[in-house]
Amino acid sequence: MASFIQDIVSGIATGSIYGLVAIGLVLVYKSTGVFNFAHGEFVALSAFLLTSLTAALGAGWLAIVAVLVIVPILGVLVHYLIIRPMMGKPLLATVMTTIGLGLALRALILILYGPDPRQFDGPIPSNAVDIGSVRIAVSDLLTIGIAVVCLLLFGLFFTRSSLGLQMRAVANQMEASILSGVNASRIYAVAFGVGALLAAVAGVLLASTSVVSVQLSNLALIAFPAVIIGGISSVQGAIVGGILVGVLEKLAEAYASQQAAIAVVYAVLLAVLLLRPQGILGTREAMRA
């Protein structure tokens, strides 16, 4: 029983990170209609940037703050330099552009940092606490806590702020929003910026609890099923999907094998697609393609 609870906690912690990454994907998809296949590379880039900024600035905390500022700016730049010129072109071309961007970022990371994994000795402690007979890693609790705070802040931003309202408006009623005077291009830039910020938070959490390697880009591959399972049009769905995938993965790993974990995740994905194509929390009308 203790190990079952431990695995659930690990799953929620891992799933929270999937959730953060998944929200970034959903947010950009919802507002721009573009599925950003370079999102995982933003996570990896954030983690690597963290290691070099820690070396340059001397303090992990300072480096974290710097990453959370720099990476969103990069996201906005990506919009203006790469995505915006693609607007009005066929969607497939834009999606291919994000795939190309991902490959380019991956190459950039390898050129700048080489293939060796790196370490980040951040301010997150690496010990565990015993709660009864259950041993829980402090970093897992912190990860869950930070993810929850991020999700709450993001939810407030999305539902309460004027930018959030404009973002929802552009996502759901693009023409009407633009003709009401909303500058959609700028809203897209904000979406990319906020998406990059969420990727940066995930990158920082992963650098602290895992190893900094270019493999972190592959995280997007597991966030994609999270997005689909939760519902591609639903921000809350992305969180639910992320946590569900994380927990499923850990339980499958514990009671079968790590290879089975991937199979289980994709089996659930398939089942959701068959039974509820719009995802657990998705809405049918919001399905675009």
Partner: peptide, 28 residues
């Protein structure tokens, strides 16, 4: 062309942003 899950005020407010002078960052 309305946002069904938003309030009347929010929907109408959308037409008013063009009269906002605060920058995006300041607004955030």
């Amino acid at each position: 062309a309305l946002l069904p899950e938003s309030t009347v005020e929010e929907n109408v407010l959308l037409g008013r942003y063009q009269h906002t002078r605060t920058g995006m960052l300041a607004g955030m």
